[in-house]
């Protein structure tokens, strides 16, 4: 059985073809430009994973929101649950780039980290 798939790991968007045996075992992945494509294809057919980015409330800085990213992918269907958990976070400036804001979110083994630094800012 052959499945066509566009790789979504990066914006390169490789067009891939995956060959599976009757029992679902993946026999081959072709069309990918890097190893990450191969592992994406395998995972997407078994347990699709997604990266999640969002913002958290921050006090005392120029902006009211601090952008955050997870340290690793989570199962696709967990996005809503993780969003809910992240929304409880509120931080105070200053925050460092890649500062961990919450460990092991929803027991998924990944952490929430700041995707930028944010200094203190006094409003004029």
């Amino acid at each position: 059985m052959k499945t066509e798939m566009i790789c979504i790991v990066c914006p390169m968007s490789c067009h891939m073809e995956i060959e599976q045996a009757e029992d679902g075992t993946i026999l081959s992945v072709i069309g990918n430009s890097c190893n990450r494509g191969d592992s994406y294809a395998r995972k997407e057919l078994t347990m699709p994973m997604r990266m999640l980015t969002t913002t958290v409330a921050i006090e005392g800085s120029l902006h009211r929101r601090l952008p955050v990213i997870l340290t690793g992918e989570i199962p696709k269907e967990k996005q809503e649950e993780v969003m809910k958990e992240i929304s409880k976070i509120c931080v105070k400036a200053p925050v460092l780039y890649q500062q961990i804001l919450k460990q092991d979110i929803c027991d998924l083994g990944v952490a929430v980290m700041a995707s930028r630094s944010m200094d203190c800012y006094e409003n004029e």
Partner: peptide
């Protein structure tokens, strides 16, 4: 980039997938 909080930036230049603000950082 600062408002593009999603990831997918930097694969060519930094060989990793960064969020927009991280790329700027």
């Amino acid at each position: 980039l600062l408002q593009c909080i999603h990831n997918g930036f930097g694969l060519h230049l930094f060989h990793e997938e960064l969020a927009g603000p991280s790329y700027a950082e």
